[in-house]
């Protein structure tokens, strides 16, 4: 009973907070609602016994990425919402996007494995500790995708530095 109750609360709160995030007029308020949203998502990870993911969610998303959002909002000094021209006015387009997104979600829920495959059963993970298992899998089984992600993240960093260097020479 208790787990369902908590899950219900977090699920409803996440939806409500997401709505608050996108409907606020003031962008700083909007970012702060998003912070609360990220904290709730971290709590959902905790319910899955994924404490490492929960903490990383807070450190990386809430602590680093969202702070950069806040910086950007402040530097642009967007106190009130700008009336931007809508990219697509037709409601059919929005509906199509929504249906596509729903299809992706349904497929991924349908495809999701309840039991992790391979040697990593739930009891084994609980025994070893979540953090240790994650590290072992990430740096042995998935080392190539990991390195590729690092490369993908490295390229824009170099690009940003190159742009900044040019600016200084002038």
């Amino acid at each position: 009973m208790l787990p369902e109750f908590f899950f219900g609360y977090f699920a409803c709160a996440i939806l409500g907070l997401a709505m608050l995030t996108v409907t606020r007029k003031n962008l700083v308020h909007s970012v702060l609602w998003m912070l609360l949203l990220f904290l709730h998502i971290a709590c959902l990870y905790l319910f899955l016994n994924a404490e490492f993911l929960a903490v990383i969610q807070v450190i990386v998303y809430a602590g680093a990425i969202l702070v950069l959002f806040l910086f950007l909002v402040m530097l642009l000094n967007l106190r009130e919402e700008h009336e931007a021209r809508r990219f697509v006015k037709a409601w059919q387009g929005r509906l199509a996007v929504c249906i596509l997104l729903l299809t992706v979600i349904v497929i991924s829920v349908y495809k999701a494995a309840v039991q992790p495959t391979g040697g990593y059963s739930i009891t084994f993970i609980n025994e070893m500790g979540h953090t240790k298992v994650l590290g072992t899998v990430l740096f042995n089984q998935y080392v190539l995708p990991f390195l590729m992600t690092a490369l993908v993240l490295f390229v824009p960093m170099v690009a940003a530095i190159v742009l900044a260097m040019k600016e200084r020479k002038r």
């Binding site: 404490e51 450190i59 809430a62 602590g63």
Partner: peptide
């Protein structure tokens, strides 16, 4: 917590 130090970092970033 099993992630004690990281928890402190998370709170510091908040």
């Amino acid at each position: 917590l099993n992630v004690g130090v990281l928890f402190i970092f998370a709170m510091a970033s908040l």
